[in-house]
Each structure stands twice: as C-alpha cells, then as structure tokens.
Write a protein that binds this DNA or RNA. Structure first.
Lengths: 110, 110
DNA sequence: GATAATGTTCGTAATTTTGCGAACAACGAA
DNA sequence: TTCGTTGTTCGCAAAATTACGAACATTATC
C-alpha cells in the first residue's frame, strides 16, 4: 500500500499521540533519522552523532523503543538499534490518515 | 502537491519535533481531530467534547496555537479556533518526508 | 584472571508538563 | 448599569521530562 491508496485505518488517538510524543524531541528525531538513513545502527555511533551524554542517549533510545519505533538487540559488546519497520509503517499511516482527514470545505472557519 | 509527488522539503528537525510535541497528547489530538472534521470551532464545543477543565483546554489550545497548528480569533463573546491550513500542510509534508526517508535495503539491521 | 570497551542503570537536580479551581476580563443582553 | 456568558490567566500542586556523572554489568581480548 502506498501513501495514496485509501486507508481503512481507524486511528487510535492514544497510539497516535504516543508516536507523536516519542518524536517530540529534536534528539529523538535525530536518532530516528540516523537509523532510517542506515548510517549505522550501533549505540556508539548514535552517541557520537549527538552532543549529549551517553546516559541521556540511552534514555532517549529507551523511549523510542517503548513507543515501538525502534528495536534494540545486544551484539556483544555492542548494542544494535534498528527502525521497527512494522510500527514505522503503522505510524506513517496514522499520521497520514490524520492529516488527510482535514476537510476541504470549511463552513465554520474562514 | 499531493502526498505522492516528490518533495523537495529539507526537513527542519527542530520544527518537526515541535509539531510532534504539540501532537504528543491525546487531548490535543482530539482537539485537532475535532477541528479538522469541522464539527465546530468554538471553545465551548471543544470543551464539551473533552473530559477536562476549561482551564486545561485553554492551555492545550494555547500550545497548539504556539506550535502553529491552529489559529484563534475572538468573535465576542466566543473564541473561534481553526486549523492553520498552511502550517497543517507543512506539518503533513514534514511527517511524510520524514517517514518516507526510511531506506528499503538495510545493510545494518536484519 | 586482569583489563579495556561498550552501554545501562542509579541517584540527583532542574525544568517542563499537566491539571485544577478561583479570580479575572470582555462583551452582549436585559 | 447590572447581569450572565464565554474564555483566559493566575497560583498552586503533582507528575513527568531532560540531563548528567558515577557506578555497574557484560563481554572481548590480552
């Protein structure tokens, strides 16, 4: 399904808000961009990309993982983070459906 | 421009995070949905739709306004809120571009 | 086994967010 | 003018977020 096909999604407002909240911080957007562009997927490289302490990076990664947008696996002694593709697609569809729901004709405003 | 055309947007991570943050709360998603579906655009009706105090609703509306997703105008004695269509489209494009940036081939993960 | 490298967790502090009731401001109507 | 309606702002409290360094755990390597 590409982004122009009709979507049957019934948006779960709670879920959409959870995705949005996870994306609501510049560092986390940067992390997601980094992973989406496949520059690397190891903690160390993510950390190097950001001007914040590793404890903080770890915390942001945890939040993204809790929101379901990424996965984390141990590849000793490193930790590999990846975009959670299934949920990524779900988030994409949710946002897309949400924004597309805006009606053209506006009887109230304007 | 529909959602399938190539987009030349250079995403501003800060701006995207700001949009996401504003959307990162169920009540604010509900407000945006309400306005997008043109059910009404007056404060009172928005308030009736939500199980929270009017002071809190007013606060959420302020945040959405600060993020640029809605506008607020006084129509005494009521206040009318509307989707800020220009910024709405901008946010839509930002999210769309962001999610679409995920590479298909993944050399690192999976 | 000792050491180095890699991340997570803990404890703490500062700030922000969320939410409420009460007080207040602005305006239309009686 | 007075009153009722409509929302905003204020003051406060509780909770969550953000960030850091230090301590800790794990594993690879010497």
């Amino acid at each position: 399904m590409n982004c122009c096909e009709k979507q049957e999604y019934t948006i779960d407002n709670e879920q959409l808000a959870r995705f949005a909240k996870a994306m609501g911080h510049p560092s986390r957007i940067a992390i997601l961009s980094f992973l989406a562009n496949l520059d690397s997927c190891y903690f160390g490289d993510i950390h190097n990309e950001l001007p914040i302490a590793k404890a903080t990076v770890s915390q942001h990664l945890k939040e993204l993982k809790d929101a379901g947008l990424i996965t984390g696996t141990i590849e000793a002694p490193k930790v590999k983070y990846c975009i959670h593709r299934e949920n990524w697609a779900k988030a994409q569809a949710y946002f897309n459906t949400f924004f597309a729901s805006l009606k053209e004709k506006d009887l109230c405003c304007e």
